[in-house]
Amino acid sequence: MPIIQTENLTKIYGTGETAVVALDHINMAVEKGEFLAVMGPSGCGKSTLLHLVGGLDRPTEGRVLLDGRDLTALEDDNLAALRRRRIGFVFQFYNLIPVLTALENAALPLLLDGVRPAEAHRHAAEWLQRLGMGDRLHHRPDQLSGGQQQRVAIARALVAEPDLILADEPTGNLDSRAGDEIAALLRRISSEWGRTILLVTHDPRIAAHADRILFMKDGRIIDETRLAGTGEEQAQALRERMETL
């Protein structure tokens, strides 16, 4: 079963003559463990799609299924709880809290969920270390480069161990070198730690890291291209490689 599935997902902003159809009956699926990129011109509905898939907003029509469960049927409280446990968000402008250190920022979702501070900090430090930020735990955001701040934001997205990461233009505010590093990191988060990633970008270099690309235009998916085998094919290839060793 796909981890995410949308059925006729539609979002219309406003009403009457000024209504904007941001999403127009989108049917798509994201497989477990897949790294999927969504590309398309500005205004084509990429962010709207990500927000609806992440339950940050509600559709005008259609459904979003997370592991087969209809998100759009959940009450706000239940939706928020599910989101905290299952989904991590990464945005273009990091959204870190300026007065908190890297460690405190990354630990925040656990603290908000009632985990004891010592435990939350230990877990946050683990993720920061994996993401190459082990020597910056006690720096505040203004003491970090853009790429480093985005790593902290990614650690924060992963700290509650969600299986789905939604990233909206995570490299949009970075120079190409830092952008490449963040893209490579997302690739590892998918390949090494098995997380499912849905990434919005308009940069071909960044999208090229993914397993598959969906192309959007005017609120619709107009094309897709597979860059690598499916998760099952990759697992099979890995098994075969292990056998030859």
């Binding site: 071909p204 270099r205 999208a207 090229a208 890291h209 993914a210 690309i213 094309d223 291209t225 860059l227 690598a228």
Partner: peptide, 9 residues
């Protein structure tokens, strides 16, 4: 475009 993306990947 698909072919070029596969190459790029």
């Amino acid at each position: 475009r698909n072919t070029l993306y596969q190459e790029l990947h």
